[in-house]
């Protein structure tokens, strides 16, 4: 099985994996999944929030596997996958908005948890994500990939098709807009 760390998205290694997966090689597709799962998860988080993100990642990859022959140039796989993920996330968001709203994740005022309490930790993370999701799309997606999924700027550029310069600008401007939102929410 190819070493995931040995190649980066858009590289010949990825293209080769895409070609093998197009020929029905599931092991190759599993490697692509490992390489891109965080990217798709970040896009899902930025668009739909945390409730649907895990499900959406699996749905997007199942859909991608079944439609993989649509990718004529294997080097375009990363961009195609991101577009697929964005569309699926928007569809999921619309479907959710058409049904009764699920309960918000925000921690109710007055609820008391020890600082290390798993609920308190996760609720604080959800509040921070909610702040990011208030940003313009380009900023929220790039910041989510960087701050939540832990991808570096160059990795984000390779996976989304953005230039390094665009990623850097999105991160810096996004952070500038995020700071007051975090302060308003009482977060660091």
């Amino acid at each position: 099985m190819p070493n995931v760390a040995a190649h980066s998205p858009g590289s010949p290694g990825t293209a080769e994996l895409v070609q093998r997966a197009q020929a029905g090689d599931r092991a190759a597709f599993a490697v692509l999944y490992r390489e891109f799962a965080r990217t798709v998860h970040g896009i899902a988080l930025a668009t739909c929030g945390e409730d649907d993100a895990d499900d959406l990642v699996q749905d997007v990859f199942v859909q991608a596997f079944q439609r993989l022959t649509e990718v004529r140039d294997p080097r375009a796989f990363a961009g195609w996958l991101c577009t697929t993920a964005r569309r699926a996330a928007i569809d999921r968001l619309r479907a959710r908005q058409q049904r009764p709203q699920p309960m918000p994740l925000d921690e109710p005022v007055g609820r008391e948890h020890a600082p290390g309490d798993a609920f308190a930790v996760r609720a604080a993370a959800a509040r921070a994500l909610a702040c990011i999701r208030r940003l313009p799309e380009a900023y929220r997606e790039t910041l989510t990939l960087r701050l939540v999924e832990g991808l570096s700027g160059p990795e984000i550029a390779a996976r989304t098709g953005l230039t390094h310069g665009s990623v850097r600008v999105n991160l810096v401007r996004g952070m500038a807009q995020l700071r007051p939102l975090l302060a308003e929410a009482g977060l660091p």
Binding site: Q22, A30, R38, D54, F65, R67, V148
Partner: peptide, 19 residues
């Protein structure tokens, strides 16, 4: 805590591939 948990894709979910 919100990052992808690294779980594997259940290959049985993939169904028949396009090829």
């Amino acid at each position: 805590p919100l990052a992808h948990d690294g779980c594997e894709l259940p290959l049985e979910r993939l169904g028949p591939d396009a090829s």
